[in-house]
Simulated assay, not measured.
Amino acid sequence: MDEKFKKIAIENSDSIVQMWMEEINSLKDGNYTSSISDELFESTNREFVNVIFTSIKNAGPPKAVESFSEKIINLGWPLSYITDGLQVFRRVTVDYILSQSEQVDSAFISNVLKSVDAWVEPLIRQLVNEYSGSWENIVSLQRVALQELSAPLIPVMDSITIMPLIGTIDTERAKLIMENLLDGVIKHNSEVVLIDITGVPVVDTMVAHHIIQAAEAVRLIGSTCILVGIRPEIAQTIVNLGIDLGKFPTKSSLKKGFRSALEITNRKIVDLETKEESIEELIQSLKGE
């Protein structure tokens, strides 16, 4: 930026900031920021304009750009807040510099515009790039987290694991279910896997096909798959569609499925009170002998 114009901007920063704040505030009621509290809006605007002026004083975009971009994303504000704010700032700064100059011919105006653009354009690029990079990183992390949550495999006992499924199952998610299921069975050395579809709203031909494929894959690596959470309406749909689930056990509830899993692994649920009474009777009988 031209040193003369830079000096004008810095020496009159209070006036430029005031003009910028007034114009930004006038846009608040008619755009995406209308629901934001006045206090938060004003404090964020002042931080924004501080980042801008720090850039001109340091002759380049400041490191604060990155943290400010992350803040805007965390607040849930769109990228247009940044671009609109910088465009307004460009216009206000040009108008102010021209108003302070006696010479206002076309060459002078052109020089002012080029000088302000040389200041603002790099800042726009960096802010947009930082915002986009931070946003893509957040989306990527959220996508990984959602994938992990969409098909979890939970070991509940030695040799027994449960995969609770919630929501719609599409082709991409079915592939993830298959991968997690096979990896988890091997990792946890599972003999029995319970696939719980209680939270799956609709079981159509495609969903049933994916579940059958997953169960067959589990069987091929030497484990047993039990499908639980078969609600009456789901059972009726499966029958009407002619889907064959006869290759692996099905149960109406997770509780019943877990009992079956215990039986398959040669275990059972024992009532402790009954067990204590049996031990006591055995002791008494031994004493009697």
Results as ranks from 00 to 15, higher is better:
209 H>W: 04
251 K>D: 01
200 V>K: 11
248 F>E: 02
169 I>D: 10
232 P>F: 03
248 F>I: 00
205 T>N: 06
180 N>M: 08
185 V>N: 11
264 I>Q: 03
238 I>L: 13
178 M>S: 14
190 S>A: 12
185 V>I: 15
221 I>R: 09
188 H>M: 09
170 D>T: 04
219 R>Y: 14
224 T>S: 11
182 L>A: 10
185 V>Y: 06
204 D>T: 06
245 L>G: 04
222 G>D: 10
250 T>A: 09
186 I>Q: 12
236 Q>C: 00
233 E>A: 08
251 K>R: 15
268 K>Q: 13
188 H>L: 12
167 G>E: 13
183 D>R: 12
177 I>N: 05
262 L>K: 12
187 K>I: 04
251 K>W: 00
171 T>L: 09
270 V>R: 08
185 V>P: 04
262 L>I: 04
222 G>P: 09
235 A>K: 08
173 R>K: 08
219 R>P: 01
158 D>L: 11
185 V>L: 07
202 V>Y: 14
237 T>A: 11
180 N>E: 07
176 L>Y: 00
218 V>G: 04
265 T>C: 06
231 R>N: 02
245 L>P: 14
204 D>H: 08
253 S>L: 06
266 N>S: 15
240 N>I: 01
268 K>E: 15
153 L>T: 14
227 L>R: 03
238 I>W: 09
189 N>A: 15
161 T>Q: 06
272 L>S: 00
165 L>D: 09
221 I>T: 06
153 L>E: 09
222 G>R: 05
191 E>I: 10
194 L>K: 06
195 I>T: 11
238 I>S: 05
181 L>H: 01
264 I>W: 01
172 E>V: 08
153 L>G: 05
154 I>A: 06
174 A>Q: 02
220 L>F: 11
